[in-house]
Amino acid sequence: MKIMTKARLKSPWVLHYDCGSCNGCDIEILAALTPKFDAERFGIVNIGDPKQADVMLLTGPSNKRNQRVLKNLYDQMPEPKVVIAIGECACSGAIFHNCPNTNGGVDKVIPIDVYVPGCAARPEQIVDGVVLALQKLAEKSEKEVG
């Protein structure tokens, strides 16, 4: 089913969750959604509801307090889905690595598909990351459809 994969690629609805970021990356995500970059060109919509989202954007290193929420949100997203870790903190914990209260990277909690490093990650990088994630989504979709 080619149409289904195409539709999936053309309509990635994103859920943005901040698991303990300094808000630097969050502002960059919002910047990517502004008219200047116009993410809606690619069908990207910031949907805010995990039950309807396809792509999860995560910022921040994830800590002991919010890992439960992160896990819940991830579970509430229907397949096929991809998860993008945005910023150094989300990728590896960065300067919070080995801090007792953080997990040091969101991949300690849920599986990550794409890592977008940078402190903070630039909008161009984020859009690039989403494009990469879409390739993974296409792979997943093809695999699912068979």
Binding site: Y17, D49, P50, K51, R68, V69, L70, N72, L73, Q76
Partner: peptide, 10 residues
């Protein structure tokens, strides 16, 4: 049947 969306605080 999934539990309702509760901002992840389920």
């Amino acid at each position: 049947i999934k539990p309702p969306y509760l901002s992840g605080e389920n």
